[in-house]
Amino acid sequence: MPDKTVEKVEALPGDTASTAGVIVTDAGPAPEKARSLWSDAWHDLRRNPLFLISAVLIVFLLVMSLWPGLFTSASPRDADLAKHYLGKPNWSHFFAPDWLGYDVQGRSIYARVVYGARASITVGVGVTVAVTVLGTVIGMIAGYFGGWTDTLLSRLTDIFLGIPFLLGALVVLNSFDDRTVWVVIMALAFLGWTQIARVARGAVITIKQADYVVAAKALGASTSRILFRHILPNALAPIIVVATIALGGYIAAEATLSFLGVGLGDTAVSWGGDVARGREQLRIAPHTLIIPSVMVSITVLSFLMFGDAVRNALDPKLR
């Protein structure tokens, strides 16, 4: 065979490919450095006002839940019955204990709002982490191995999906006397992993057919290498999207359960519990109900907005 010469391809990163006439610039102008898909997503996120607003709010809430002492010197449990029913907010005393008034037992509502963040955020983040891990593992096993394993796990998912989330949580939590944050997290995670499992299973089934997975198999890669180096990193984007959007829902669920009296115990400081107690004073002191409710709404909204922004960045096709 005659010797062929091969021209070396010049340094021309970023050229364009078009599929069926739609122009896709698949590489940027002269990217001097490596640009991973994650860094591309981050590049998009930083320019999204939705993301910036929600991120600021979330950081604020996180700081509040980690170091509530930074925001108020009052304790949420100090009850001064002398202030009982003196509970009108004092809007000019910014950040003072009486800023938002007092509740029926004479406790500073401001302090309770600040300290209540911890319960909500812990439950929200805790449940999300738990369902993500649980759901991803189950979904990945079902999707990758297929066959009987898949049939079994998918039916199990369907069964759990058939349980109404709040009703199920109500029943489960009712059987616990001492409902700590961890009990609530476990109960919600126990019922909530199905959505992530389904998303993970779907993603894994698509990805395991990709040529790069086939290529890894052809090289003789082990199952764990294929799962953790090739499939998981590519399945992560849709999972993260679903998880961030679900986070808001778990915070709302915790508040709802606390409101119904089966969430955190009566001694815990939580927005849901305060909403429940505030309901009794709706006529005389509506702010005892409204203020914690607004906090729940703001938190849930921030996480939903955050999830939306993340989805737009990670999966532009969904837009």
Binding site: S36, D211, V214, A216, A221, R225, N234
Partner: peptide
């Protein structure tokens, strides 16, 4: 492979894609 767009793992660098062969062997 046929399709150069799907036969390379999009989340790995070129060095990792080629280098992986040495990790396996």
């Amino acid at each position: 492979f046929q399709d150069p767009y799907t036969s390379l793992n999009p989340r790995m660098t070129v060095g990792d894609i080629i280098g992986e062969t040495f990790e396996i062997h």
